[in-house]
Design a protein around this nucleic acid. Structure first.
Lengths: 252, 252
DNA sequence: TCACATTTGTCCGTATGTATC
DNA sequence: AGATACATACGGACAAATGTG
């Protein structure tokens, strides 16, 4: 107990069986014993191996599932499969934070601009051919879909995730994905089901907005290719300012 | 089903009872029906109300607990209490991401500097008397503890959280807390239990490092008070560079 | 200090739904 | 279509922890 003097407030293990089970499995994943794609034993066998009841196993699996370590499928041949979905798990919690009104649209917009500004700096420095190709495909794809009158919210959101990926910094990638997930959530609420706007009117406006966004994305991409940071940042600022106006209905 | 045409990939509800239960309770929290401090009914009564088995209730509570919506205590007078711990939940997941080696020390340091640089900008613009007082108390507290030979990792980490709080942007607060939680985790691994370093030697070095950190924090604080952004950023850069060197053992 | 009630934690047995072959 | 394998779900029971009188 030599470390006991260090005054650390890490709480004592809750003495809960299912936590010990989930911790043990989590540790095996950290240590690489279980790799993505591996399938865990069925609940009944896990219960035997750990010498605990099935309920404890189930609650442990619930924890691992919600923490982004496994996915679970029902039915024959199903079961718990190791799969890394931590990023999307963090994004989901960010969305919860928004719905708990812990973050406002204003705060989101400010932080998003600042973070993506930094992302652009590193994207210009670190983007390789694959990144630029993905970004180019993204805008081309969005363009085609707009002409075919297909909604492009997902593509337009994904452009920002691709930019973050080009920065080669996984922390930025995770944070940007969390932010864009929240933005997409609000964007979807602006759909044709929203009050006082008939479908046709919304649809025309949506097309116009999509084209505007696409134009901004094209300009940002060309600025990244030219390695022109100032141009990229300026365009991003105008772009996000416009996005902010669109999200204004959710402002408090 | 008019929204069905919008091609959104929100998956169908998993048809899992415990998910429906947790979703319903979560919604009641979002809508303010349940407020922080409120206590949920006992598991058996919840099972009756929802007309489901107790096992489903337990798994639903597990989800809410892990998502940061409730805390649970055993024993008489215990139970599930509404409590907002989303921030610390996000921090925990970030730590998982590190242990899954999704983020490196290099990436952490770079992102941390960029984000805290921005935080300083907004802290200088938005900090009020209370923020400055808290920061001052933090450095004073750390100073006293160093003189009393008490470890000040927690205080020194908290300084950065207080800076983020002064920026008045909750997104920055959440991200900075996630980052500092990871840093603290690594710092603690550098304790006297680490290999090839006897306690006394580590202890002396720890004192020196604490004093160095304290000096940096004092200078950053005075720069914030003077509203001198350049000085604050320069000091932060030197500070984080030194922290990075200390974390080098974990670099891959 | 000592029961006692309350509530979570845990296990077992059993039944049902669902996906795969 | 039928058999199999698996998660999902219910009910009952007891153990353990914690606050109360």
């Amino acid at each position: 107990m030599s470390s006991e003097s260090k005054a650390m407030f890490t709480p004592i293990k809750g003495s809960r069986t299912f936590e010990e089970v989930s911790d043990q499995i989590k540790k095996l994943i950290f240590d690489g014993v279980f790799k993505p794609g591996d399938k865990l034993l069925p609940e009944t066998e896990l219960a035997q191996q750990f010498n605990v009841g099935r309920q404890s196993i189930r609650e442990a699996l619930r924890i691992l599932e919600l923490s982004g370590f496994i996915t679970i499928q029902k039915g024959g041949g199903g079961g718990a499969v190791i799969k890394d979905t931590i990023s999307s798990t963090i994004s989901r919690l960010f969305l919860d934070a928004f719905q708990m009104e812990k973050i406002t649209i204003e705060e989101l917009t400010v932080a998003r601009f600042e973070i993506e500004k930094t992302v652009l700096k590193y994207a210009i420095a670190n983007a390789d051919e694959t990144d630029l190709k993905r970004l180019q495909e993204n805008v081309d794809d969005a363009c085609k879909k707009i002409e075919a009158n297909i909604n492009v919210i997902d593509e337009n959101i994904h452009f920002h995730n691709l930019l973050a990926r080009a920065s080669k910094n996984h922390l930025f990638i995770i944070v940007v994905e969390a932010v864009t997930t929240a933005v997409r959530h609000f964007m979807r609420q602006l759909g044709p089901d929203a009050e006082f706007s008939d479908d046709k009117k919304w649809y025309n406006e949506n097309i116009i907005q999509s084209k505007t966004t696409l134009a901004y994305h094209r300009e940002i991409l060309s600025a990244v290719i030219e390695k022109n940071l100032n141009k990229a940042v300026d365009t991003l600022e105008n772009h996000l300012q416009e996005v902010k106006n669109r999200l204004q209905p959710f402002a408090r």
